[in-house]
């Protein structure tokens, strides 16, 4: 490894040390990312009557997909719906924050950036458990909701879809804010001023200039928020109940009980959706601009 580090200062003339530099990491990704994905697809086609003790036979059981999707259609759709709502909420919440950081923060910009990342430093699970307390039946939020009539007198938030979506929104908000901030920050202020000089109202200027120019950030942020939300099972487990199960919960529990073919079929389906979304994104942005 050390012989490779000293190489890269004079590029093109060398006998392609690029491959030497890339090889160790590429091998790792191949062995522990690509090969496992292939194995996941293979597992999804195993004979579903097998077990860990008896072993699984490869029977090209495409029926696994039909069966598991039919059986778990509800958590699958619910997972996508929760993730979509959480992503939308993140966009609504994240845009003003990213905008403030990019255009209003002045010399506080770096501090705000640190503050946006800071919640990450407290463990994900510990933060999510804090939400359990905030949304508890005897807690402040439920109390206010009941007083204002937003919630029925015996209405609750914990163990409902609302709590799960709230948890997802909170946990993945920074993934929305950061790419939004990066793309807003790049905008040439003179373009926005020019819109104003040409008699655009601030709102028109925003709609016609700022918003379109920040679209790369919107798209990247949407992906970065939607993808982890769609696969999440932590928020549903800690803040929801059995009626709020998402696809991640099903995959996790199927694996835990050793029903590998069904779990793999569901994982492959989820991955296929995500890859399709990423492919659309790459066609828009190209491979060099990948985050």
């Amino acid at each position: 490894m050390s012989s490779a580090t000293s190489a890269p200062s004079m590029p093109r003339r060398r006998l392609s040390p690029a491959w030497l530099l890339l090889l160790p990491g590429a091998l790792w990704l191949a062995a522990f990312f690509l090969v496992p994905l292939v194995q996941l697809v293979a597992t999804s086609l195993y004979d579903p009557t097998g077990s860990e003790e008896l072993g699984y036979a490869m029977t090209w059981e495409f029926g696994n997909y039909v069966d598991s999707l039919a059986f778990y259609a509800e958590p699958f759709l619910r997972g996508f719906a929760y993730a979509a709502i959480a992503t939308l909420l993140c966009l609504v919440l994240g845009y003003p924050l990213a905008y403030t950081m990019a255009f209003k923060a002045g010399r506080w910009k770096n501090l705000m950036l640190i503050l946006v990342i800071a919640p990450f430093f407290t463990s994900f699970l510990v933060r999510t458990l804090a939400w359990k307390l905030i949304l508890a039946d005897n807690g402040f939020v439920v109390g206010v909701g009941r007083t204002l009539g937003l919630l029925a007198d015996d209405g609750r938030l914990l163990a409902t879809g609302i709590a799960v979506v709230a948890g997802l929104t909170y946990n993945f908000l920074p993934f929305m804010v950061l790419p939004l901030y990066v793309s807003l920050e790049k905008i040439d202020h003179r373009l926005i001023e020019a819109a104003g000089d040409l008699y655009a109202s601030p709102l028109q200027g925003f709609r016609r200039v700022t918003l379109p120019l920040s679209m790369p950030g919107v798209v990247a942020g949407t992906l970065l928020t939607f993808i982890p939300s769609a696969g999440d099972f932590i928020n549903s487990r800690l803040l929801g109940d059995t009626t709020t199960q998402m696809i991640g919960n099903v995959i996790e529990s199927r694996f835990k009980v050793g029903d590998y073919p069904a779990a793999a079929a569901l994982s492959v389906t989820l991955m296929a959706f995500i890859v399709a979304m990423v492919a659309v994104y790459i066609r828009r942005a190209g491979t060099e601009e990948l985050l």
């Binding site: 590429a26 996941l40 993808i227 982890p228 793999a264 995500i274």
Partner: peptide, 23 residues
């Protein structure tokens, strides 16, 4: 290479974990 490096970041953690376990 760019795509292969990007994909693990774009994969839901549940898929990464599940596929490694399957392997």
């Amino acid at each position: 290479a760019n795509v292969v490096i990007f994909l693990p970041m774009a994969s839901p953690e549940v898929v990464l974990g599940a596929s490694l376990l399957a392997l």
